[in-house]
């Protein structure tokens, strides 16, 4: 960790002013990923702007029937917020599938979006990594890549985005509210995270001087037919090999609307609207789910060690959609996968 100045922002405008004034500055809220990376000298901010006390901690209903979630609502509070539990249980479930309760108590909603990949080479400053040091090369391409991307990767970077919550949020068509020196704007969730291309060091389309103020979820929460299934190497407290967020709207056994997103497979939470479209109007049964899975995975490309992910993703998609269709979402405590 390198030395840094510490200051506390008094309000959002103050935060934006402070970060715009210092190119080496970073915001800190929960700190769970940033401090982790600073201790390994991966992140090297010269100034930390503490935004953890800004009044961005409310969950409010919007005029259009959705919810506006303050960027500083802790993950644990969001998962257990009555409105989230009741209307957006997919979000609650995805949050509870990630990290530990201690980390969820600290991590903020906004921070969850900008957490960085857990690719081992990104963390190890002794090895090349284009994301950490642009142009240095990708060690994972010819190295250990069992956990890496099968969709949307580039020759520059095959890392995955580690969030669970974001998989649910992208599935639900959330939007990200940000404020910068020129005022506020909204970013559709699907456009918030980027694919690596040849700029893997840039994870998101958040501007360098912008702050996330809120996440908005639209009215439709799919609270009846949903499931979040996370598959990993141990039964808790591990990042996903594959995770699936599925949500359905059914009428007489026919799919009216579908949402389908994957975690652990790409540089961003991976939502596929084509696969969703393919589900619409189809009977809620395995053949439909399999066809959607095939469509979603049509461009999947394995690395040397992660070919299993493609087949596993298909099976996980089918299972998660099945759970959603039956109205029996995956429990995050009982590890039996029904």
């Amino acid at each position: 960790m390198i030395p840094f100045q510490y200051t506390r922002a008094n309000n959002v405008a103050d935060a934006v002013r402070l970060i715009a004034a210092n190119s080496g500055a970073k915001f800190i809220a929960g700190g769970t990923n940033l401090l982790d990376l600073m201790k390994d000298n991966v992140e090297r901010p010269t100034k930390l702007i503490d935004i953890s006390r800004l009044p961005l901690t409310s969950v409010e209903e919007t005029a259009s029937g959705g919810l506006r979630i303050g960027a500083l609502v802790p993950n644990a509070d969001l998962a257990w917020h009555p409105l989230i539990e009741k209307r957006y249980p997919l979000v609650a479930s995805a949050i509870l599938a990630g990290a530990s309760q201690q980390l969820r108590n600290m991590a903020s909603t906004g921070g969850n979006l900008v957490q960085r990949t857990r690719c081992a080479y990104f963390y190890d400053t002794a090895t090349p990594c284009n994301k950490r040091q642009p142009g240095s090369g990708c060690s994972a391409v010819n190295g250990i890549n069992r956990g890496h991307a099968i969709l949307g990767a580039s020759t520059s970077c095959i890392a995955t985005h580690p969030s669970d919550m974001c998989v649910a949020l992208v599935a639900l068509d959330a939007t990200v509210h940000v404020t910068g020196p020129n005022g506020g704007r909204t970013i559709p969730f699907a456009d918030f995270h980027r694919l690596p291309g040849d700029t893997p060091h840039i994870d998101t389309n958040l501007g360098p001087d912008e702050i996330i103020t809120a996440i908005e979820v639209p009215a439709k929460g799919f609270a009846t037919n949903y499931s979040y299934l996370k598959i990993r190497d141990r039964l808790s407290y591990a990042f996903a090999l594959i995770s699936v967020a599925a949500a359905l709207e059914l009428k007489d056994g026919t799919i009216q609307e579908a949402r389908l997103a994957l975690g652990g497979v790409a540089h961003k939470p991976w939502r596929d609207v084509a696969a969703e479209a393919a589900l619409r109007g189809r009977p809620a049964e395995e053949a439909s789910f399999a066809a959607a899975a095939d469509l979603l995975l049509r461009d999947a490309r394995p690395q040397a060690q992660n070919g299993f992910k493609i087949d596993l993703a298909k099976r996980a998609i089918i299972r998660t959609l099945t759970q959603a269709a039956r109205g029996t979402p995956q429990s995050q405590s009982n590890k039996t996968i029904q």
């Binding site: 081992a120 080479y121 090895t127 250990i144 190497d233 039964l235």
Partner: peptide
Amino acid sequence: HEETVYDHGFGRIVNHNIAEYHVPVNAD
């Protein structure tokens, strides 16, 4: 769960931490 994973190209341990070197947690 347990495996110390080497990148034999670097001769270096890749999962040198207790998040990626998996040991059983309570749920297991």
